[in-house]
Design a protein around this nucleic acid. Sequence first.
RNA 1: CCGCCCAUAGCUCAAUUGGAUAGAGCAUCCGCCUUCUAAGCGGAAGGUUCCAGGUUCGAGCCCUGGUGGGCGGACCA
Length: 575
Amino acid sequence: MRIKELLNLRFSAAMQAAGIPSECSPTLALSGKPQFGDYQANGAMGAAKRLKTNPRELAAKILENLDLDGIADKLEIAGPGFINIYLSNDFLANSVAQSAVKLKKNANPQTVVVDYSSPNLAKEMHVGHLRSTIIGDSIARVLEYQGHKVVRQNHMGDWGTQFGMLIAELEQHLGEGEQAALALNDLEVFYQQSKKHFDEDPGFADTARAYVVKLQSGDQHCRTLWQKFIDVSVAHNLEIYKELNVGLSREHIMPESAYNNDLQNVLDDLTAQGLAVESDGAKVVFLEELADKNGDPSPMIIQKSGGGFLYATSDLAAMRHRVNNLHADRILYYIDARQSLHMKQVFTAARKAGYAAQTVSLEHHPFGTMMGKDGKPFKTRSGGTVKLADLLVEAVERAERLIREKNTDLDDQEINLIARKVGIGAVKYADLSKTRTNDYIFDWDAMMSFEGNTAPYLQYAYTRIRSIFRKAGIDPQSFSAEINIVEPQEKTLTMKLLQFEEIIDQVASEGYPHILCNYVYELASAFMSFYEQCPVLKDDVAKETQNSRLQLSKQTSETIAQGLDLLGIEVMEKM
RNA sequence: CCGCCCAUAGCUCAAUUGGAUAGAGCAUCCGCCUUCUAAGCGGAAGGUUCCAGGUUCGAGCCCUGGUGGGCGGACCA
């Protein structure tokens, strides 16, 4: 049930009947304050400007033609020409009774490719990979919920220049009789070692560079050593995904190396089309579309002067694959905002080369950088990156400590399970609840406070509802009753429940999970107020009232659980 | 030099995409547990939305010019 959509239809009809051109939108919005009703239509003012008439008179004319029988109790014109709408409690109660959170059947399902996580291999995942991984995952879940076909693509960086260096280092270790598994036990340390060698030993550096070329041209020895890194690295990443409750598995991995054999084809095609030209020994696509004020086109290098390919090349190859083989209607890229120019170049070149028709929507959904409390990019005290694995362990430990403080009647197994859901949920929510595009401050204490607008607050609201049903001995799944709105808290809660679908629509089209976070928080908050003010199981509560409140509680718990699930956060029965 | 992004309460963040009196959470202060889980609820206090202009019925949001910060810009990704 989308109330805004319903009101929009009714208002559009009324405006048309009042002789207002159809380009004028009713522009419906939730009212900010109770004295302005539940919803407000602000379109009369815009239309009046266009028709050069008095907005209040025009609003009156709209009301004359408006049919909201059975929907609104009261309509009023306020201020310069706002129309305030007071919805009827019966209408709200009936609407919410008909709405249920469940997977949608979509009449026009799209194939949506979601490119997310995409870490570089041969290094452990660090906090910088968190955003792409969990935001992308959430949007993938939302699109699936709406009935779209989602194709997750984990564009892992397994083919970069650094692999020459790593292979040379591994070869040296093996030559000294060390086992590969042991040498690669700590990828981070191994990477640092080889980097040091590369910087300090010119002979080693030459070997490393030669190995990159050999690897990419299919040399068997290099390929074998390279595979060892990939195996260790992928296993590590899959473990992190599992711990994070992220829906990425082996089948979604489509690494850079998978496009290796197509890179020359891309270059040849771009050259044949006259898009790629030689410049200073390299092959470059010059994009006039992205020229600066001086008229200088933006250069995108497709092939290095030494013959090597770059990430622009594999991104274009990936684009062709996604359009031609995966049949994407929409491709979403969850990639750091620092790569905005690169993405713009890839999109522009792909359009020009005909790799993506205008009917395919190409969307870079960027996100900001993770900062420390000092406002500078987030690092450990020693200046290194924070490993994602360490972060998650600490989150779970902190959650467990808190649970043991608060609760005594849970056994160890229950505590472990809850600590995992609470700790991981808190980390994810802290990230998901902030506007994607901005840089954000990573603050352990704020993230782990477990109070206020955090995942545990939402999980707690859920457990409170489950507890009510447990106490009443009622199975919520089979429970059903009429809702009767009496108290203001009941109305607020009902209104919130009815906004779920609109929120999901918005998140799906714009790719901002924080909108969903805000919604679930407001819903949980509305429930907490309801919980304090509207007793359910007390002795003096009439049976009918009790059933109505149980129904409201039931639907709230379902909506919270569904909302959290779309964020990739789990709920539990007790905490 | 060129380009992109950001600036909102002491701190961390919102603001339904141009709507009415800018909202939450932390932190501070005051109340509420013999009653469905106090990881909670109610209340108080906290603002020149970086600055200066402009557009209009209306601007945190749009335009122009500044200030301060972040990030990109041929051979890493």
